[in-house]
Structures are given as C-alpha cells and as structure tokens.
Design a protein around this nucleic acid. Structure first.
Lengths: 231, 231
DNA sequence: CGGAGTATTGAATCCACTCAACATATGTGG
DNA sequence: CCACATATGTTGAGTGGATTCAATACTCCG
C-alpha cells in the first residue's frame, strides 16, 4: 500500500486515500491525472481565513492544523489533519469562504482535486459521495465530543480527553496494557487545542506523571501507564 | 407554505422540511405515505444516549435540545433543534449508537422516516442527498464556531455570541436597528449551552443591561439596543 | 392568589491565568 | 562540530474571574 508512494514519484498514491479506496486500478489511474500535488514546509499555510479555494485537498504526508484566532488574540485549533485526511469538503457543497487557517505543523505533501473535476468524478462513482458523508459525520462526532470536553470547565478533564484521543489515534498498545505515543503537538499546541495555556498544560502533565498515570520521555514521548485513570 | 400544516391534519407538511423542498407535489405525496408522526411533551426524550434508532426525524413544531451529561454531572447542550431541523442523519450514514440525549424543551411534533424508506427515496431523488450534505456542512460550521466561542475563556464573549445566534435565528429587527427576541432557553439552559452556571449568566445579562446594551422584559424577552456591542 | 419553578444577589473560595525568571531543546552558520 | 540564537518548556508568586453555597426575590401558570 505504502510502497512506491512516499514522495509521490509513483502515481498511485491516490489509492491510499480512504475516499478513493473503493475504486479499481483503472479508475485510480484516471483520478491521478486530475490530481495536482503540492508541498508545504513547516509553518506554511495551505489556506487562509477568507480564502475561496474550491476543491478537495488530501493530506498525503505530514500534519496540519486548522485554527482561528480568537478575539483575545489567541490561537484556537479546531482540527488536526493527518495523512489520509482531507479538507476543503465544504467548498464542494456550499459556497462559503474558508473560515479558518490551515497550517503545516511539519512538512506536508498534498494532493488536490478541483471542484469541477471532483464533481465529474462523483457522477461516475457515487459511492465516493458516501465516503465523504461518512467522514463529515465522523467529523461532527469529533467536534461534538470536543465541545463536551471544552465545556467541562475542568482543565484536567480536557487534558485527559486529549491524551486519550492521541493515544487512540497515534498510540501503540503494549502487552502490559500501557500505551506509548508521540504527541503530535507542542505544549503550546495542546494548549490551543483544548483552550488553555502552555503553562497549565505543563503543570497538568507533571501532576499526571507524579500521580503515576503517565511517564514522559523527552517532550513528545509519553507512556500511559494506566489508561483507565484518564477516563 | 405554513397554511394547512401546523397540526399536521393535512399531509403536505413534508413540504416545509428543507431537505424535501425540491420535490414536486406528487413526490411529496409519496414521501408523506412513508412518514410516521409522533408528539412529545415538554421534558420527554426523543432519544437516549446509547439508543440505536435508525432513521431521520424532522422537527415540525416545538423545540428540542441535544445534550450529554458531563463527568461533573452537569448538562452540556450540543444542539438546539427548531422546526425544519432534522436529526438522526448520523444513523443513515454510519452504524453507531446515538451519543447524546434529545429532549423536548417544549411540546414537539416530529415526522420520522425509517432508514430503509429514506434510502429508497434517495435512490430516486439523489438531490435529497445533496441537501443532507449541505446541512451536515452547516452543522460542522456551527460546531466549529461554537468551539471557537467556548474556547474563548471569556464568558462575556460566549454570552454575546449566544445572544447574536438567537437574535439571528429568532429575532425580529426593528426600524431603529434594535432587535427583539424571545430566548429559547432558561438561564440554566443558556448556561449549559455555553458551559457556565445559571448564576453567571444572570450576572452577565445584568451587566449588559446596566451598560445599556440590552433591555430585559420578564425572563425570556430581550431587546438588543446596540447589536454591534455584542460583536 | 398561591406555589413551584426560575432567577437574582452576596460572600467566600479556588482554579487557571498572567507575568517573570530560568531551563532545556532545537536548529543554524561559521 | 561547536557556539550561539531561537524556540519551547518549566516553575513560582500573585491576581482575578467564575464557581459554589446560601439566602432571597421574582414570575408565570394553574
């Protein structure tokens, strides 16, 4: 699956993208001709608030964050995008400007399909539409539980929730039941994600370590000893 | 549009529902045969967390709230549903249990279509699917800006945002530029919606009144004198 | 009119924030 | 590859805004 694709020398990388996964070899080849690739460096923006790009962008490699700046001048992260995730779906459905910025938090490779090409594609393969719908519903789910967590005034709960989310998405489970993961965000990033400050994240992670719930190695690596105490 | 429908003695009420609005008279008549109606009293639940109802429910009359109970035992309101809104769309797309409760906050009339009937319908009228997609995207939009607002630590900002939302949705604009609206929620409800407490909502609304931004008449009626000061 | 539910107000407490100083990590050019 | 520069993370002290608890007032509906 992953073989020839990493740097997209080979053209079948579209196969890795969940929404195209049901297409056969020939169809994929056709999709590939529609795709435009683009690379972004860490810190570069794929989108800006108020822009009117129309099309679908798929993350092939790297990570990106969607964020807005709150009226207090702080950054609020709304989504994190990882390889296989797509963005811009809104522009396919309704006519509205982008409402947030999207920035690479590490070097990112993307594939883009224009709105027009994509719509032609859907006419021939309606089940792609189904995939998009599914993804939208999942995203609603995530946003809802995010609201639930942010709504919980207790910052501790939010930290726990975000650790669980990351463990679930990027972690590996050990035989003894512990989890290991690399945090995809800095302290500051985590803070923007859960709506608090760098310092507070730092303090809370420390308490968790002192309580024996987690062990930190370096800044990004975390071992969750007792995942139930995060729930 | 509204004429014969209110109490659904007449069967064409489906016409009022945005997602069916593109259908012609004959098609609507057919949809109507698929619909099951149900009435709920204030406080009754349309759904419970963990339930596995599959189908689409459309609010015809009244208001409902979707909420979960946070780990602190407080209620967090995720959505408000008004006439024309639908819920249960998730069950049409993926197989997952309901993740929140939905409760009538005043007497509610609903129309339901089963998942199977709805899917048959979509096969014949694919543009209904388009409507659902649009609604999903709007909902994502709303959730995102909700996160932006809840993330803003400042409770004042949240109150302002919620007043704007309600003014926009349920308010009427006067000639002098002021807005009048009936709050769809109690103080406690507003508190659960923006993640704070009854008392704080009360205090903040009072300050707004003292500052001359709003005037309250009774508990539910609010006149916004200077809408720009809420932005 | 009365009573239950809803809203307001006050006082004390506490949690997260801010500011500031210091420590560690990361990355760059000489 | 080291030295410096910049970014990122930690820790402490002090402050303030929202919460909690408790008592009182309002309002709306039967």
């Amino acid at each position: 699956m992953e073989h020839t694709c990493s740097n997209c020398g080979h053209s079948l990388c579209a196969k890795r993208v969940p929404i195209f996964s049901k297409l056969n070899e020939d169809e994929i080849k056709k999709v590939v001709t529609l795709i435009r690739r683009k690379h972004y460096q860490k810190g570069e923006n794929l989108f800006f608030e108020g822009g009117d790009f129309k099309g679908l962008v798929i993350i092939n490699k790297g990570k990106a964050k969607a964020y807005t700046n709150t009226s207090e001048g702080k950054e609020q992260i709304l989504h994190l995008f990882f390889p296989g995730d797509f963005l811009g779906e809104k522009s396919l459905v309704i006519n509205k400007k982008t409402e947030y910025n999207v920035q690479a938090i590490e070097p990112v490779d993307t594939c883009m399909i224009s709105k027009k090409d994509f719509q032609d594609l859907i006419k021939k393969h309606p089940n792609i539409n189904q995939k998009i719908m599914e993804e939208l519903v999942y995203r609603i789910d995530r946003l809802e539980s995010m609201i639930e967590n942010i709504g919980a005034k207790d910052i501790e709960k939010r930290i726990n929730a975000v650790l669980l989310e990351f463990a679930h998405k990027h972690g590996t489970k050990n035989e003894d039941g512990s989890f290991e993961l690399m945090l995809p965000l800095s302290r500051e990033g985590i803070a923007s994600y859960i709506g608090t400050t760098r310092e507070t994240v730092s303090r809370k992670l420390n308490s968790l370590q002192n309580e024996g719930v987690i062990v930190m190695t370096g800044n990004k690596k975390i071992k969750i000893l007792d995942i139930n105490r995060l729930k």
